[in-house]
């Protein structure tokens, strides 16, 4: 189904960790037809205002029983700081759903592997689909405890969560791959869905390949239009003959199969 531009009202907003907010939006039909992993392109400047100019891409974080959905984001720049000031009743101009979401891999012991603000896009996938198809495990990595997000929501959903932090202030000290490798070696994971910074995804992809476990990666790249027209958000994808070609994260992605992404 094609994307559409729509306006939705803010239901609530609250802080979930240092520098992180959950923005809850009133129910809208577009949200219901959004596949987990697809994204919304959100105008942060409002009608007739052109600064900040570009929309911001966000995946939906989770669905509430009343049909409202939320975005979970970190305040990293001008756009997200503006978003963080929105209150109940404010309106948000959104284009969505955009891109291609996750698809179900075979296997009954899937793992979600997320790093930082790459964690939120995984939750809706687990909530809507994955949880009904197996025993879901999550390995979530953060720099430090104050930036940890989503781990409690995931545990409440019945997901077995392991947290890693770079400084050891929460969970296991180290990177997500430090926690992932023993599980792969023990054969306790048979599918991976990952989202996070590029170095993490590169490491996860190579680990998945080594243990022969299929993986899907949700990529992030700076976007202009979000609909496939501007060719800003490209990623090198392997062709069959060993060469690579640029594909659009916003259109052919953001979810790609791990073996097709060329990490250089």
């Amino acid at each position: 189904m094609p994307p559409e531009q729509f306006v939705v009202r803010v239901a609530a907003q609250h802080a979930v960790a240092d520098e992180h907010f959950e923005l809850i939006l009133e129910p809208h039909p577009v949200f219901e037809r959004t596949a987990p992993g697809q994204f919304m392109n959100v105008s942060v400047s409002g009608a007739d205002r052109f600064d900040p100019l570009l929309r911001r891409p966000f995946s939906l974080y989770r669905r509430f029983p009343d049909g409202s959905y939320s975005l979970l984001y970190r305040t990293v720049g001008r756009g997200t700081r503006i978003l963080s000031r929105l209150q109940k009743g404010d309106q948000l101009d959104i284009i969505g759903p955009l891109g291609k979401g996750f698809s179900l891999l075979p296997g009954s012991r899937p793992a979600l592997v997320g790093g930082g603000v790459g964690v939120p896009p995984l939750f809706l996938w687990a909530q809507k689909v994955l949880i009904h198809h197996g025993d879901v495990r999550a390995i979530l990595g953060f720099n430090e405890a104050r930036l940890a997000i989503c781990h409690n929501d995931m545990a409440e959903l019945g997901i077995q969560v392991e947290v890693t932090t770079v400084d050891g202030s929460l969970g296991r000290q180290g990177l997500v791959t430090d926690a992932l490798e023993p599980l792969l070696r023990a054969g306790e994971i048979d599918a991976i869905y990952a989202c996070g910074p590029y170095p993490m995804l590169a490491a996860v992809a190579s680990m998945a390949k080594r243990y022969g476990v299929p993986a899907q990666l949700a990529l992030e790249e700076w976007m202009g239009c979000g609909v496939g027209a501007c060719l800003s958000c490209v990623v090198p994808i392997r062709n069959g003959d060993g060469s690579t070609e640029y594909q659009r994260v916003c259109k052919e992605g953001p979810v790609f199969s791990a073996e097709e992404v060329y990490f250089g």
Binding site: D51, L53, L54, W222, M223, G224, S232, C233, V234
Partner: peptide
């Protein structure tokens, strides 16, 4: 990439 950067009321590509 990066092929794009936002600036005040504008963008670079």
């Amino acid at each position: 990439v990066p092929r794009i950067a936002e600036t005040h009321a504008g963008m670079l590509n």
